[in-house]
Design a protein around this nucleic acid. Structure first.
Lengths: 230, 230
DNA sequence: ATTCAGGTCTTTGGATACAATGAGAGAAAT
DNA sequence: ATTTCTCTCATTGTATCCAAAGACCTGAAT
């Protein structure tokens, strides 16, 4: 009976809050949205989803509420639900927030990172650097960063960061598709330098690197307003 | 059909998302929780609320989902709903987040603040300094800070800050009750200095003042773990 | 006396049925 | 031709009913 939902697996893309049908539907819908199956702006009809999952519209409504609180779905009363889309300004806001709170989360996490985790981070960074397709790049990058936060036992902060990643997922995909997964070599170098700071236990430097990494990404992103065309 | 909900009134304690019964119930329940009528840990029975508002349990469930996404209510599947309570660690986390993102919000807001708004901020600060009871102190402090953010046209950032204020409201009340609304003179001085920076349009200094203000409050709060006794 | 098992009972979760609201098409008037 | 009004239909919102899952109480056995 705490204020937080359990999250044993830091990599889980879905909180999987509980066993209710609404939560299960939310989990699967979330994965579909994050996978890119639904583009932002796509309308979501309750009945369609209900039929798809073999349930009534009621748990679907609960699922939509959950996804709304995740920022993935936008509900309008008496009208319907849509997959959320961001304006460039909103996306930049999210990156500004990330830039300020993810270093904090990393600071909580760093002292608890095991050698095994650091090794795994190195593997992920190397695998990314070897070059891959867009989807793999996105998956590895997400796993890399969220794993670097896995030492933190925080509740609110971790969830907030998770939400921000989910909300911007589609635009990261669009951006990466546009410029190619290796166009920005800086990403790989920054990851390597970040790992170095983590290995040394240099919290200050790790925070600075991460903040800069997010900041640079935001500035790159803002050069492509076309990604956010309505 | 944007990703944000309208919020014309920056002071509204409730988003008042739309006209559905669930949202209206959520709005009123939220106000009751924030007013202190329900202590954290209090169980909320769906049927009680339904009867209180003359509705069925269904919109109540929606209201509880909404409040859960606000962080004010904790739902457990097949078990029930409780007014959320925070541990000291969780509350400190929220203050750490606030310390990093509220200065950012203030930076967005500052250039848009009208002379009238600055005057109103001065009135609020003066009124607080004159000394009042706990409830008035809380109301004025909340209005002061949220009004200082009212110039920002942000969406996500403003909502996030709003949620953090709501989630910690009960503990601010408990803390203020414990030490008295005037025990911390520093609050008043900080407010005055903050207004000075705002008047000069000195964004850097305003951000620094606000960050320090929140930080100091967090440190004070952490001296009283008894406030968070289960 | 304490602990464990069973059963009842309260409370939540879900499905069907109905009401109400909004959106879109079509027709008429300017 | 364009705009506006109205009517119809698709879709969401709510209530009632039923099912299921915990919680609590009672009882017996060690």
């Amino acid at each position: 009976m705490t204020a937080t939902t359990d999250r044993t697996d830091p990599m889980a893309s879905a909180p999987s809050r509980d066993g209710s049908a609404g939560s299960r539907i939310a989990t699967r819908l979330r994965d579909e949205i994050l996978s890119g199956a639904y583009a932002p702006g796509t309308r979501i009809r309750q009945e369609d989803v209900a039929e798809q999952f073999g349930a009534s519209r009621l748990p679907v409504r609960e699922a939509l509420r959950i996804l709304e609180s995740d920022g993935l779905v936008t509900l309008v009363a008496n009208t319907g639900a849509w997959v959320s889309h961001l304006s460039l300004a909103e996306c930049e806001e999210m990156y500004q927030i990330r830039e300020r709170i993810e270093p904090l989360l990393l600071r909580y996490s760093l002292p608890q990172l095991s050698p095994e985790t650091l090794g795994r981070l190195q593997e992920l960074a190397d695998e990314m650097q070897a070059g891959t397709d867009v989807e793999t790049f996105l998956r590895l990058d997400r796993e890399f960063h969220l794993l670097s936060y896995s030492g933190a036992v925080t509740s609110i902060l971790g969830e907030t960061v998770h939400r921000l990643w989910n909300s911007t997922q589609h635009y990261r995909r669009a951006f990466t598709t546009l410029i190619g997964p290796d166009a920005g070599r800086a990403v790989h170098y920054e990851h390597q330098l970040l790992i170095g700071a983590l290995r040394r236990g240099d919290s200050e430097e790790a925070e600075r690197m991460l903040g800069g990494h997010i900041r640079r990404t935001r500035l790159e992103l803002s050069k492509h307003p076309a990604l956010f065309a309505q």
